[in-house]
Simulated scan of single mutants.
Amino acid sequence: MALYQEPRLLDFTKTPPHLQFNKYVLTGYRPVSTAGECLRSLFYIHNELGNIYTHGIPFLLFLVLLPCSIPWMEVDSTWICVAHYLACLCPTIGSVLYHLFMNHIGGQHVYNTLLSLDMVGVCLVNTLGALPIIYITLLCYPTVRQTALLAYILVSAYGIYCATTAHTNFLRLRAFVWQALFRFSLFLFRVYGTGVGSPESLRLFVIMDTLAALGGLVNVIQIPERFSPGLFDNWGNSHQIMHVMVVCSIIYLHWGTMEDLAWIRGFQCPAE
């Protein structure tokens, strides 16, 4: 027996205009709700439930399990561990808040604020997640390393601005291009230059970025629901697929960073 009466779900044409961002998802929209009603939507099926749980469950697992696998006391620069831990958490918590409260009674203003928070979380996983990569790749070049860290932070700030002011999924995806190119240049420096780092971590980082890019592309193209509108309203639509790929990307980021942190303990830069 239900503890409360579930609300009547809406179809695409009855939902507020700011929530009509995927015309191939036809049903299962929650009505405009208070904060308490949004929270209660965790316990009945609607078309955002999969989006909430595909990032909510990983957030809780990352929150509890990741600290156990990070070598906090074995790394000279503890900030690397802190940055990595926050990087793994940021995109999932921002996403959960966005999808849970997107139909809040506050309307489009609240929606836009939550979307910006979600985008900032995505930018932060790129920013904070890449800082250990930059630090270790340029380990033997302290001056260049400091400049590169500052440059990446500035590039990331520009990405945050672009992502939070964009009006389409394509423009939001494009906002992350400069960060991706910066990381790719670091990967090339490891392969063809004198950058350092674990040989195994480079493969993991490439998989990480590939998964993230494919997830973003799936979300922009809106497949598979584009080919069968209505069939994937609640489960298996493009946004949920992207969420799963983003979580897998974060896992590869973690594995790659752990490889680098293990490698750095036994490495010394060659004498000039």
Rank of each mutant, 00 (worst) to 15 (best):
A83F: 14
A83P: 01
A83Q: 14
A83K: 03
A83D: 13
A83H: 06
H84S: 15
H84Y: 05
H84D: 09
Y85P: 13
Y85S: 10
L86A: 14
L86H: 05
L86E: 06
L86G: 11
L86Y: 11
L86N: 05
A87G: 14
A87N: 10
C88H: 01
L89Y: 07
L89I: 13
C90N: 08
C90W: 10
C90A: 14
C90M: 15
C90K: 02
P91A: 10
P91G: 09
P91K: 07
P91R: 06
P91Q: 09
P91E: 11
T92R: 02
T92V: 13
I93W: 15
I93D: 03
I93L: 14
I93Q: 05
I93G: 02
I93T: 10
G94A: 11
G94R: 06
G94D: 06
S95C: 13
S95Q: 07
S95K: 09
V96Y: 10
V96P: 06
L97Y: 00
L97M: 14
L97T: 00
L97Q: 03
Y98W: 06
Y98V: 00
Y98N: 02
Y98D: 02
Y98E: 02
H99T: 04
H99E: 08
H99L: 08
H99C: 09
H99M: 06
L100C: 12
L100N: 05
L100P: 05
L100I: 04
L100Q: 15
F101E: 05
F101S: 08
F101C: 08
F101N: 08
M102N: 14
M102V: 01
M102H: 05
M102W: 00
N103L: 07
N103T: 07
H104S: 08
H104P: 07
I105P: 00
I105D: 07
I105G: 00
I105M: 09
I105H: 11
G106Q: 03
G107E: 09
G107T: 07
G107N: 10
G107K: 12
G107A: 10
Q108M: 13
Q108Y: 04
H109Q: 13
H109V: 12
H109I: 09
H109M: 11
Y111K: 03
Y111N: 14
N112W: 00
N112H: 04
N112T: 02
N112A: 10
N112L: 09
T113Q: 03
T113L: 12
T113K: 02
L114F: 03
L115Q: 07
S116G: 14
S116N: 05
S116K: 10
S116T: 00
S116M: 07
S116L: 01
S116W: 00
